[in-house]
Simulated scan of single mutants.
Amino acid sequence: MWGIIPAAGSGTRIQPLAFSKELLPVGSRFDEGVERPRAVSEYLVERMVRGGADKIAFVIAPGKCDILQYYGDRFGDAAMTYVVQPRPGGLCDAVFRAVPFVHPSEPVIVGLPDTVWFPEDALRALPDDRLSFLLFPVERPEFFDAVITDGKDRVLEIQVKRANAESPWIWGAFKMPGAVLHELHALWCARGRSDEYIGTLVNAWLAQGGEAVGVRAGRSYVDVGTIHGYREAIGLLRGQE
């Protein structure tokens, strides 16, 4: 199973930093009995591995070689791969940079590297055979992508950063068969590669007869891309101790 991590963004909301925002120290971990700072992206990588990923593809900008130096070729049992996004092009463009590596028969997980969420094993709740979104309740859904579902958890619409979002449930990660990733990529290309956000592309895919489900397995979710989010993440991690 592949895990795709779009990490090419410049992180302007939390700059200036002397390193890639995905390496921002948040919390700590023990390495051979020694406590060391933990990069924020480690939380996602760890959760992907718990969810079954044995191959992780970081999509990085040309200057973000510090991510490669930090993770190297492995993280636990997972092999690490690095794909370059030559210039900023949005989330869809970043995710689809990994398409050539993914066989249609392989499941794929996609998550955001500057987030911290619980429970740690929530990705296990997502099915392998369809596009599925891991949902989390938040107080300000207008800052995220709210997911509207029906009574059977089928996704009806994704409301991208909408001021009057109709649901407090947002997606924090998603999973799909490799074949669906290829279908979404083909649709993105057919639409002139104009979709920046995953939500608008999925809405178009749903309108063409595609299906997706929303799984309310998430409990807490923090975007660490701002100073406020950073402080909130530290508080969340303290609450888990």
Rank of each mutant, 00 (worst) to 15 (best):
I56N: 08
L68Y: 04
I67Q: 10
V59W: 10
D129G: 06
V45N: 10
V108E: 04
V108L: 14
A78G: 11
Y82L: 04
P137S: 12
V83S: 01
P107W: 11
P104G: 06
R124F: 00
V110G: 03
V99M: 01
G72P: 13
P62E: 01
P88L: 00
R50F: 03
P62W: 03
R36Q: 15
D129C: 02
F96L: 12
V102R: 12
P113C: 03
Y71Q: 01
E46Y: 06
R140Y: 11
D121S: 14
V59C: 10
C92W: 06
S105P: 00
R47I: 00
R87P: 00
R130Q: 13
Q69L: 11
G72N: 14
R87I: 01
C92D: 11
D129A: 04
E120C: 01
R36T: 15
V138C: 02
T81V: 08
P127L: 05
Y70E: 14
A57Y: 07
D121T: 15
L126V: 05
E106M: 13
L44H: 04
D145C: 13
D128K: 06
E120D: 15
Y71G: 01
D129M: 01
R74M: 10
L123C: 10
K64F: 14
A39Y: 05
K55T: 11
V108Y: 07
F144T: 00
V40I: 15
Y71D: 02
R124Q: 15
D150L: 08
V110A: 06
V110N: 08
M48Y: 00
D66N: 10
R124G: 15
Q69P: 00
D93Q: 13
T149G: 03
D128C: 03
G72S: 13
V138W: 05
D128L: 13
C92P: 10
D73M: 13
R74Q: 12
R87L: 11
G51R: 12
R36M: 11
R38W: 06
P104K: 08
A122S: 14
P104M: 09
A122K: 11
Q85M: 07
Q69N: 14
E120R: 13
P62T: 02
V147I: 14
Y71T: 02
V99R: 14
L91S: 05
